[in-house]
Simulated scan of single mutants.
Amino acid sequence: MKFKIVKVHAVAKWCWQASDDNCGICRDPFECFCSDCKAPGDDCPIVWGQCSHCFHMHCILKWLQSQQVNQQCPMCRQDWVFKE
């Protein structure tokens, strides 16, 4: 029995490799995007702190701007330092 392939439809899925499933600030899944973005992907990456908590980049930047005196992680209240 022989088959002839007429069409192929490729399907792909991407996801972030994060310790949590949701952003701790906006509570949206990391596979989605924050409320400031219109589409998921490189425009809304996940960023990690040295405390190992991760958030959408736009969410943590807004959070840090609102914390004018002590810029702390919203989850553990340690001083926020971006993990390199």
Score class of each variant (00 low, 15 high):
residue 1 M to W: 12
residue 1 M to A: 03
residue 2 K to H: 09
residue 3 F to R: 14
residue 3 F to V: 07
residue 4 K to F: 08
residue 5 I to M: 14
residue 5 I to V: 09
residue 6 V to T: 07
residue 7 K to F: 04
residue 8 V to M: 15
residue 8 V to D: 04
residue 10 A to T: 15
residue 11 V to E: 12
residue 12 A to P: 02
residue 12 A to Q: 09
residue 15 C to N: 12
residue 16 W to R: 06
residue 16 W to K: 13
residue 16 W to D: 05
residue 17 Q to Y: 14
residue 18 A to D: 08
residue 19 S to G: 09
residue 22 N to R: 04
residue 22 N to W: 06
residue 22 N to T: 03
residue 24 G to W: 13
residue 26 C to W: 05
residue 27 R to Y: 15
residue 28 D to Q: 08
residue 30 F to S: 02
residue 30 F to W: 03
residue 32 C to T: 11
residue 32 C to H: 11
residue 32 C to P: 04
residue 35 S to Y: 04
residue 35 S to R: 11
residue 35 S to H: 08
residue 36 D to P: 03
residue 36 D to Y: 14
residue 37 C to Y: 11
residue 38 K to T: 15
residue 39 A to I: 08
residue 39 A to Y: 11
residue 40 P to Q: 06
residue 40 P to L: 03
residue 41 G to P: 02
residue 43 D to K: 08
residue 44 C to S: 12
residue 44 C to K: 06
residue 44 C to A: 15
residue 45 P to R: 14
residue 45 P to N: 05
residue 45 P to E: 06
residue 46 I to Y: 04
residue 46 I to T: 12
residue 48 W to P: 03
residue 48 W to Q: 06
residue 49 G to H: 08
residue 49 G to F: 14
residue 50 Q to V: 15
residue 50 Q to A: 10
residue 52 S to Y: 10
residue 53 H to Q: 02
residue 53 H to A: 02
residue 53 H to G: 01
residue 54 C to V: 07
residue 55 F to V: 01
residue 55 F to L: 02
residue 58 H to Q: 15
residue 58 H to R: 09
residue 59 C to W: 00
residue 60 I to T: 00
residue 60 I to Y: 00
residue 60 I to A: 01
residue 61 L to T: 09
residue 61 L to M: 05
residue 61 L to N: 14
residue 62 K to W: 01
residue 63 W to Y: 08
residue 66 S to N: 05
residue 66 S to K: 12
residue 67 Q to W: 01
residue 67 Q to D: 02
residue 67 Q to R: 10
residue 68 Q to W: 00
residue 68 Q to P: 07
residue 68 Q to S: 09
residue 69 V to N: 05
residue 69 V to K: 03
residue 69 V to Q: 06
residue 69 V to G: 04
residue 71 Q to A: 02
residue 71 Q to M: 05
residue 73 C to G: 04
residue 73 C to F: 01
residue 74 P to K: 00
residue 75 M to W: 07
residue 77 R to Q: 11
residue 77 R to N: 11
residue 78 Q to W: 15
residue 78 Q to C: 07
residue 80 W to D: 00
residue 81 V to N: 12
residue 81 V to P: 10
residue 83 K to S: 13
residue 84 E to S: 05
residue 84 E to H: 08
